[in-house]
């Protein structure tokens, strides 16, 4: 009978120990999910338009100019400008974690609808 109680105590001790190990391993051993930068991308495009800079680059299809106006520490960035037909200038990155923001522009001096895509990915 005493042995049975020892078994039960051992089981409870093992559950507590392994439970603790599982708890700390989920924090320290699991690779953390990368921060969601999509909203950052939207925010930067909006900021660039508020500064009166985005439209000029968009009208001139200057996607490198758009990307050069924004710098993010430890991240790469690129931009694409797409027209009504869906054809785009600029490049989409081929990386595993890429976040994209979108900004729609009706035009600057004349009606020329464009979609600006701004991509961010880790270095």
């Amino acid at each position: 009978m005493r042995g049975i109680w020892y078994v039960i105590e051992s089981v409870m001790a093992t559950i507590i120990m392994f439970g603790f190990l599982m708890l700390i391993s989920s924090v320290y051993i699991t690779k953390p999910y990368p921060a969601d930068m999509a909203l950052k991308s939207y925010d930067m495009l909006q900021g660039l338009d508020n500064q009166g800079v985005l439209r000029n680059y968009t009208e001139n299809l200057n996607y490198t100019g758009i990307a050069s106006q924004m710098e993010i520490y430890t991240y790469n960035r690129s931009a694409q400008i797409c027209d009504y037909a869906g054809s785009c200038v600029g490049s989409m990155p081929s990386a595993t974690d890429v976040w994209a923001g979108t900004y729609i522009v009706a035009g600057l001096s004349s009606y020329q609808p464009r979609e600006v895509r701004f991509y961010i990915w880790p270095l």
């Binding site: 078994v7 051992s10 089981v11 392994f18």
Partner: peptide, 15 residues
């Protein structure tokens, strides 16, 4: 005692 330890290990694993 070793039977009890083995039993404790098996029950913990099942849990």
């Amino acid at each position: 005692g070793q039977f009890f330890l083995l039993g404790a290990f098996l029950v913990s694993t099942l849990f």
